[in-house]
Design a protein around this nucleic acid. Structure first.
Lengths: 231, 231
DNA sequence: CCAAGACTTTGAACACGTTCGAAATTGAAC
DNA sequence: GTTCAATTTCGAACGTGTTCAAAGTCTTGG
């Protein structure tokens, strides 16, 4: 049966994934070799490459899981959370808690994201879904703001950028429990909320509109319509 | 004579550096191997490693040169440049012009910067001089702003962060002459200048002070005094 | 001119990520 | 039950960045 075959494949892929992640966390990303992973999973080196095209691909699978978990947790708690600060804190802190212990893996992702011609970059078409899903969470958190959808989307993208900054800080944060990054998030959000509220007023509309067209031109905004597919 | 020895060493180092850079630009960073560099420079593989501890170390030498050139050009033209927008444009565009053609090398630098435990990161002590020198240029550009030195320094650091964003955009910018990044810089600065002027008023002072302490706590501001060396 | 020490050069060797062709296994069709 | 194509497994082999110990060269002091 084809289903069984597939399921077995999935199971093996999961085995490799779990083994790899355990080793990454135990010895670090660089110190864990593909041979380690294969041996520890009880398969051959070549077999591992049948399920993952590269070592970082395993980390990208991890990040996909992080993204899923982030979405799930935020969507669950967001309806019960009032206040802009509280809602934004929820999105940021949930993400932080999810990745806090895996700084080396974030570093590996960041390294490939910075490579020109990489398919998973924020600026690339392939990475766009990834980006948009993440931005959508910030957008949802901004719901209490009475403003236009476009303005909200723009602010959400700004927050996503800030969240990138959080990740960069995290990668280098050796403090116990990553309290430095935690404190950074909390204080930065306290500062950001009044600014966001200001931006949501008619006074901020002009600035946001400018910002939006800037981001659009650089492929960071979702395309408004799919009707522009001419060469 | 010891001097001669040193000079010869410098000359050889320069030869390796020049050869490597030419190859990087011709074939790309990844496609250029250390063996290529050694062969092309007419030396052995081991000898290359006598002058540069690693392949990226060559790229860091390149970036040091970029930094020097950036400083020199900006310092030369800044006194003759009036207006905040013009001064900031000078700093940003000079940098962009210097690195525009070397996106792959920037990617290699970025990749190691994102690695935890890296000595040259913006958050590490060893990289601090690098950061401070760069921030100082933005600080100088902000001179027309009538405000406190601390506020100016804070804004300079923000601009440096924006400049990091420019570099990230650049790495993925395939457009002819990197006009996308150029346009981004020009438009972003147009938006930024009024905001900076606003921040320089008493109204913005509170926000800037908060921001400053935030940045200080994360090791991004220069230490005010060296008198806190109690471990 | 020689000896000692420092600096420089060398290429073999190592460990790694990745590729590849061939062998083994599987499931479906008859 | 046999056959066949597809999938999966395997580990040798490749190219890479980097290390290292041994050999070579040069500088200095006598």
């Amino acid at each position: 049966m084809r289903g069984t075959l597939r399921a077995d494949g999935e199971r093996k892929r999961a085995l490799i994934y779990d083994t790899a992640l355990a080793l990454f966390r135990e010895k670090g990303f660089d110190a864990t070799t593909m041979r380690d992973i294969a041996k520890s999973a009880g398969i051959s080196l070549g077999s591992a490459y049948h399920y993952f095209p590269s070592k970082v691909a395993i980390v990208f699978a991890y990040y996909e899981e992080v993204q899923d978990a982030h979405e799930e947790r935020v969507r669950k708690k967001l309806p019960r959370t009032d206040g802009l600060l509280e809602r934004l804190t929820l999105v940021f802190e949930t993400k932080l808690e999810l990745v806090r212990r895996d700084r080396q893996l974030l570093g590996a992702i960041g390294a490939t994201l910075v490579q020109p011609g990489n398919e998973l970059s924020a600026f690339s078409v392939e990475g766009r879904d990834f980006l948009q899903r993440s931005v959508a969470l910030f957008d949802a958190a901004l719901e209490p703001l009475a403003t236009t959808p476009e303005a909200r989307r723009t602010m959400a993208l700004l927050l996503w950028t800030a969240h990138l900054g959080m990740m960069l800080r995290l990668v280098h944060d050796d403090s116990r429990g990553q309290k430095r990054t935690k404190s950074l998030v909390s204080r930065a959000l306290t500062m950001a909320v009044p600014l966001l509220q200001l931006a949501a007023t008619p006074m901020g509309a002009g600035l946001l509109a400018q910002l939006r067209s800037l981001l659009e031109e650089n492929g960071l905004m979702p395309l408004p319509e799919e009707t522009l597919s001419e060469g």
